[in-house]
Simulated assay, not measured.
Amino acid sequence: MNVKLIAHTQLSEEFYDSFDEYGGHSGWSGNPFERMNAADSAAVALTAIRTCYSPLKPTEIVAQEGEKYFGNAASDGEGGTEADRLFRHITGSGHTSTLEHITYTFAIEGVSRALLAQLTRHRHLSFSVQSQRYVRMGSADKIGGFDSVFPPSIEGNPEAKRRFRGMMINAQEDYDTLRSLGVPPEDARMVLPNAAACSLVMTGNSRTLLDFYAKRRPGRGAQHEIADLAVRLRDEIVKVDPWLAPYFDTKKEGE
């Protein structure tokens, strides 16, 4: 499995340029988030949250309140900035719709069709998946035949691994035979197993991805492959948005 973040929420240049227009106080020029080590996504979250409770316009909030929230220590004694305190308060109160404005797009490679079926049970995720209809899976095709995902319970059992590998070889031979008999790829793919690997591009917002992690992380009874995916998605997110790390529940990870 290979998981890479390929895009995430960023502030627009026009929004950056508006800080001076709406700010009106000294010391607020250029990129304030570099100075205060605040992520663009946190500015989006602050804008969404304060829009619900502030008389200011959304375009004015970061310029006029950013210093207060990102420049001061949290008043609740829980660490971080006042922005972190606000985020804790909002998520604790269940107002997590404000996190839906932060999105992430991932390249996910080498996962099984069984995992793909589980992914589709989660709402508010968008997928573009490698097609077994238009991508021909024959041994002689450009792809060189389908790859297989071996579960750990099979990988660690020599006899089971030998038999499983034989089943994958047989499935490939059956697919090739059907294609040689004139069966189109869209019908020949019916013999391909759940273990057949695929790649996809997936986009989700932070609320959905936090919910996905809470349900699929290690220690919650999820199948190994999707639990591994949950951890990899989390790791990619916190690389660019470390402020979200506390919101990923890791208390029982590894159980």
Score class of each variant (00 low, 15 high):
Leu119Pro: 03
Ser139Leu: 05
Asp17Arg: 14
Glu78Ile: 01
Glu78Val: 01
Gly110Val: 04
Asp141Ile: 06
Tyr104Cys: 08
Glu155Asp: 15
Thr96Gln: 00
Leu46Asn: 04
Thr250Trp: 02
Ala160Gln: 14
Arg162Asp: 13
Glu60Tyr: 10
Ala196Arg: 07
Lys252Ala: 13
Leu119Phe: 02
Val201Trp: 08
Met36Gln: 11
Leu178Asp: 03
Leu233Arg: 05
Leu200Val: 06
Ser180Trp: 00
Gly79Arg: 01
Thr59Trp: 12
Gln130Arg: 08
His95Ser: 09
Phe212Glu: 01
Val183Asp: 10
Tyr134Arg: 06
Phe106Lys: 05
Ala171Tyr: 00
Glu100Ala: 03
Asn194Glu: 09
Asn194Cys: 07
Tyr175Asp: 10
Glu253His: 04
Ala73Pro: 03
Ile237Gly: 08
Met168Lys: 00
Glu82Met: 15
Val231Arg: 10
Arg50Ala: 05
Arg50Thr: 01
Ala140Met: 09
Cys198Val: 09
Asn31Met: 03
Lys142Pro: 00
Glu67His: 14
Tyr104Gln: 02
Gly145Arg: 11
Asn205Trp: 00
Phe164Asp: 02
Gly182Ala: 06
Val231Pro: 00
Val135Trp: 04
Pro242Glu: 02
Gly221Cys: 05
Glu34Cys: 07
Arg207Gln: 13
Ala63Asn: 09
Pro151Ser: 07
Ile143Glu: 12
Met167Leu: 15
Pro193Lys: 08
Ser199Thr: 10
Asp211Gln: 14
Ser153Cys: 15
Ser29His: 13
Thr47Gly: 03
Arg163Ser: 13
Tyr22Trp: 15
Met202Ile: 05
Arg50Gln: 06
Thr203Arg: 04
Gln130Gly: 00
Ser75Cys: 07
Phe33Cys: 11
Ala117Cys: 07
Leu210Ser: 09
Arg133Ile: 06
Arg207Tyr: 04
His124Trp: 13
Ser54Arg: 03
Glu60Ile: 06
Asp20Cys: 03
Gly30Asn: 08
Asn37Trp: 06
Glu60Phe: 05
Thr98Gln: 10
Gln172Tyr: 06
Gly80Lys: 12
Phe212Gly: 00
Leu200His: 05
Thr51Gly: 02
Val44Met: 10
Met36Pro: 02
Ile143Ala: 14
Ala195Gln: 11
Lys215Phe: 12
Asn31Gln: 07
Arg113Phe: 01
Asp17Phe: 04
Ala195Ser: 15
Thr98Ser: 09
Pro152Glu: 12
Ala107Ser: 15
Leu11Pro: 02
Asn194Lys: 06
His8Glu: 10
Pro58His: 08
Tyr69Asn: 04
Phe87His: 04
Tyr16Glu: 05
Thr250Val: 11
Asp241Ala: 15
Ser199Arg: 11
Tyr22Thr: 04
Phe127Trp: 08
Ser29Trp: 13
Ile154Asp: 11
Gly144Asp: 10
Tyr16Ser: 01
Asn194Gln: 13
Lys239Gln: 14
Ala214Thr: 08
Phe70Tyr: 11
Phe106Cys: 04
Thr103Pro: 06
Gly71Gln: 12
Met168Pro: 00
Phe212Ile: 02
His101Arg: 10
Ile226Trp: 11
Ala74Thr: 09
Gly80Met: 13
Gly30Ile: 09
Phe33Ala: 12
His101Thr: 12
Gly77Ser: 08
Gly145Met: 09
Glu225Met: 03
